[in-house]
Nucleic acid binder design. Sequence first.
DNA 1: GTTCTGACA
DNA 2: TGTCAGGA
Length: 148
Amino acid sequence: MRHVFDVHRLVFRIGELASMTQVSARQLRYWEKKQLIKSREREGEQARVYTFGTFVQVSMIKYYLDNGYTLTAAAAKAQERDSRAKLLRRFIFKGLRGFAEMDGQVAINMGAFDDQQTLMALVPEEGTVTYRLVPNAEARRLTQDLPD
DNA sequence: GTTCTGACA
DNA sequence: TGTCAGGA
């Protein structure tokens, strides 16, 4: 059933994307010419192919457009939001992968604090979460990656 | 049937 | 941005 959740398999043609997002095919082509979005060409085809990521991007631009932003501003807003989402995703991903045990408690490796130290979050079964800075080498030693 | 580029009564 | 032409 994993294949059902593989977003890489979710690709669309311009007509599909247009009806999904309420953005006209004319607009999609125009936005692409203005470098606001991208489409990848299908081998041997001349028809555009859009990824799921582009669907999300177009949806965000459409949203800001409907809320009064100009096309350029809407695209900038969407890009900004996408950047923050990627940061958050990276943070969560690293957090989920970096479990460790410290003082008998579960700790989450929250990534490098600076050049030498790593921020660890100690999460007790109950009560307040506390934080501790440990040398990078120790953090690496304590942290065990979870299987994919 | 769908998509593509270019053009504008 | 819509829409139509003329091809693919």
